[in-house]
Design a protein around this nucleic acid. Sequence first.
DNA 1: AGTTAGCACTCGTCTCCTATGAGTGCTAAC
DNA 2: GTTAGCACTCATAGGAGACGAGTGCTAACT
Lengths: 342, 342
Amino acid sequence: MEVLSERKKRILHAVVASHIKTADPVGSRTVARTYRMGLSSATIRNEMADLEEMGYLEQPHTSAGRIPSQKGYRYYVDHLMTSSKLSDEEELSISRSLSSEKMREIEQIIANAVKVLSAVTRQTSLIMGPQFQKSTFQQMRILPLDERRGLVVLITDSGFIKNKVIELNQSLSPPELQQVVSYLNHKLFGLSIDQVTTSLINELKRDLFRRLEILEQAFILLEESLREEQQARVYLGGTTNILSQPEFKSVDKIHRMLSLFEQESLLFEILEKGLSEEGIVVKIGTENEYEDIHECSLITATYKIKQRVLGTIGVLGPTRMDYRWIIAVLRCLVDQLNRTLS
Amino acid sequence: MEVLSERKKRILHAVVASHIKTADPVGSRTVARTYRMGLSSATIRNEMADLEEMGYLEQPHTSAGRIPSQKGYRYYVDHLMTSSKLSDEEELSISRSLSSEKMREIEQIIANAVKVLSAVTRQTSLIMGPQFQKSTFQQMRILPLDERRGLVVLITDSGFIKNKVIELNQSLSPPELQQVVSYLNHKLFGLSIDQVTTSLINELKRDLFRRLEILEQAFILLEESLREEQQARVYLGGTTNILSQPEFKSVDKIHRMLSLFEQESLLFEILEKGLSEEGIVVKIGTENEYEDIHECSLITATYKIKQRVLGTIGVLGPTRMDYRWIIAVLRCLVDQLNRTLS
DNA sequence: AGTTAGCACTCGTCTCCTATGAGTGCTAAC
DNA sequence: GTTAGCACTCATAGGAGACGAGTGCTAACT
């Protein structure tokens, strides 16, 4: 990456800032006037021509001003953008709406966080629900309901509770059941759900079959219930916010964007990319893998439960988005979220 | 309501059918030709002028054809539309996609049904999740997790399982807990969740307080968990389908529609209206209470679990929708759904 | 009396044209 | 290296005209 002169940096910064604000191409005159460069528009024009040649700016058409290219945004995010602090009111409003007393259940907290985030940023926001597989097994219980049915309850360290009614093909005496359950708890305790593989389950099954040949179905169902949520839910908020963005005024574009939002599995994949790297990740335009969001940027952050990274939360908006501010909001929200969840 | 001559009925029917198919205003010539009336366009023109005067048709502008008015659609739905049977393939495809083996959990069945419905009809569809309050209490268990925490499990006759971790401010001996639980089960069994009012809970609380002054927090939480889901979830599918409809090409209209979809509580109210009446309800245009869907029609049906009406499922589309066919699809789907859920 | 042919009329849509103005690139002077 | 000046470009808006689908009305026909 070439080195830009101080002046070029200032001009690029000005162009990005102005375009983020107004959504219009910005001309040399505007830069000269509004950003008090102490230079005439002609000089700025020359510099902007240079910047265009280097690929940081582009022109929608000959007689329009310049807009930042993807490379320009990247440079802005990496080198020009100063980090910003939210105002006290903003911070307060986030923490207040996040911590309404009743919010005990983890899923509710997540669902609420996405609402808050989209409301504050006025963009679309997404959260990947905490990943079941990354939590560790804590205990399992079987609650007999009647002669033929039982309720399997599975509890993980991060507070997940999953349950499933199972049918037993033979009635079980409480002590027998107790025995099975405590054996399983002993074997499984502390393992992450990821580690409860089919082969491990088969092994346990073999062990138990020797003693009681009953729980066949219970096992199948336990196994199923573990596999089934391989893919955590994705929560969406403010999906219609993109409709207010001037860059999305073609129905066709809107259609493609919104269709994407209906495909949870795709959203999941998109968010999953941010999971590997702790902290904030900014993906601009075509840096995103999916074609439908090549005109968008995605800012993601990871959140944790008890020090373990469990999910991703992100904001999706047009490439022309207020990176500085949104990153600040995201930082604040994740902080709060981490605290609430632990 | 006036009586229409046989001929007027045929013409109205033709106009509605043609407009549903093409979305364009339909002219006298089209009616004469495509529907083989054995009449000249001029005659039809006269009849159409009559129908317009009576309020069944309207003209977007002087030199355009006619489109059915809301009243026209109403007449069509009430008097002209014959009921239709789905083709075997259609029926098969619905029942197949609805009954994939693994679908044990009630919420998954519901979520899947809405997907199928929107995919088949290519409209937006909504389901009100089964109403917790309408089910009856079956049993409650408290599972001690450790010294200070317990898991409350609530099971209803329709297969709902709700659970919640509670903190006990004092440790409880298993027999004490057992005592409380069996007392509660005894008192609550068979009541619908609706009937478990705050005053009833208070009464129970008084009874128990005399014996053990412990479960204060457990009670608060039980109460909360009952109240909290007063309002069942609404599942949405195919929200972007309306974007393909030619009547929704203004971004503004789309925006208003989609914003509505983000407000779950409003959707709930809309669907709730259909709950009172068993069977299929068609609401056309302004017959819907909410202004944002005054250009839409909503067809709803109720579904049951074990003979009890528990929720509403519906299709939302432009007033110009294929009522006949969609009603047939909805009938078929609800049938399947009722069978699956019982 | 009901039906039909004929015709003038309306009005939305499409296309072409022009005026406008923002913003550029280039050149020459400072 | 910087700036003023000027010719040039091009998206956008508005207006004029052609087109055509479809109507309402009248007069003639059965």
